Computed example of a mutant assay.
Amino acid sequence: MAMTYRAILLVVGLAALLGGCHRPMPPVAFHADGRPPRLSDWHVVEVHGGKLELNQGVVPYDLNTPLFTDYAHKLRTIWMPKGESAKYQPVDTLDFPVGTVISKTFYYPRAADGTFTDVLRTDDYSHDFAGQGLDLSRVHLVETRILARRKDGWVAFPYVWNNAQTEATLQRTGAVEPLTLVAADGSREDFNYVVPDESQCASCHAQDWVSRQVHPIGPKARHINKDYAYADGVQNQLEHLVKVGYLSGLPAMAGVPRDAVWNDPKAPLDARARAYFDINCGHCHNIHGAANTTGLSLIYGTPEDRHMGICKPPTAAGRGTGDHLFDIVPGQPDESIIPYRLSSAEPGVMMPELGRSTVHREGLALIRAWIAAQPGSCTPIH
């Protein structure tokens, strides 16, 4: 039976009412000073209709090789004021303008039939997303970190999500959340996910340990030179930033550096290991970083010699050496300090010192394989 005119009006009105329940977010709010108490005060990402959604103008991005954080998955975003853009840098972090807001949301896929604290240990991101945002029926939000580029430099803000997964609040002193990693074979690993406090944020994000000014780590050209599946199609991330007006000065792509994907079996072992060191260790282990006194440099472009730890004795003895004599002994991962420290989750022994409470088994296996493939030997110390 055909619908009456009155019935049609009723359906149209109901649809309009339901559609009006989901109002668009207010524009992104850049806070030039102060410490906003809620993540929603920024209007960068917000929860609506069971999804963590990105605001208009908020661009997601990813890294070729990400920093390991207890197997957490991460949603990274960039936003800039209208008319502003970052300047391309071949080696250092892109030169972002005042007003830039970078966010990184740490989350886990939920374990089927598990409790709220049961999360998956997996590299599979395929079920996480709903459009450009996250499907909250499938993921457990833990924290969102904001880096804001103010007039006097970058400022870090750690926000922790509530159990209702509706809002994240500022936790300047950090937080600890007990979780259980559930592997594909059903094995379980209890651990404490540690949200860093503001001073710990600075310890990793300070590119120069003298000034201790905070800088982003991930958005360097070599880390983000990769394709991303945007809402309007797949495109190289650097070219997409140019397209939306967020990047200027990008040279021909053939001349842009690119880190390898650490777990890509088609990439050379050396390139994969170097990329893993670069993102996980290089922010501290460089001539200006917090670990500059060690003489160990693990950043992009370091020669594969003593500067990178090959046959280099440690600057200090102690538990962190495991009684090993050199950072890297070619062909002998079991005699090398670096894999010994990567294999530990004990404070005072493990490396990196912050950002994890578990051992990255797959990353450790990569570094061990790389050391095992190194030619040569070390002269014993007498």
Rank of each mutant, 00 (worst) to 15 (best):
G233E: 13
P333E: 13
T321A: 12
M253R: 02
V244L: 15
Y246Q: 02
G318K: 00
A317Y: 10
G301P: 00
H240E: 04
P314I: 03
N280D: 11
L298K: 04
D259S: 15
S344G: 05
Y246E: 04
D270H: 07
H360M: 10
A271G: 02
T315D: 15
R222E: 07
G289M: 01
D305Y: 08
A316H: 09
V359K: 01
V349E: 12
I217E: 08
T321C: 13
M308A: 15
A290N: 08
A345V: 05
K243A: 13
W262C: 00
V242R: 06
T315A: 15
D278G: 02
V256N: 11
H283G: 04
Y230R: 01
D323N: 13
R319F: 14
G301K: 01
H215T: 03
V329Y: 11
F326D: 10
K226F: 04
D227H: 07
L342R: 00
D227N: 11
A345D: 15
L238Q: 06
H223R: 05
G331N: 05
L269P: 05
K312W: 00
A271W: 11
T302G: 02
P352K: 02
G289I: 00
A271N: 04
P303N: 06
G233N: 08
E335Y: 13
Q235I: 03
Q332K: 13
A273G: 08
D232M: 10
M350I: 06
M351E: 05
N225Q: 09
A229S: 13
N292V: 02
Y230P: 04
E304R: 00
G218T: 03
A267G: 09
H307V: 00
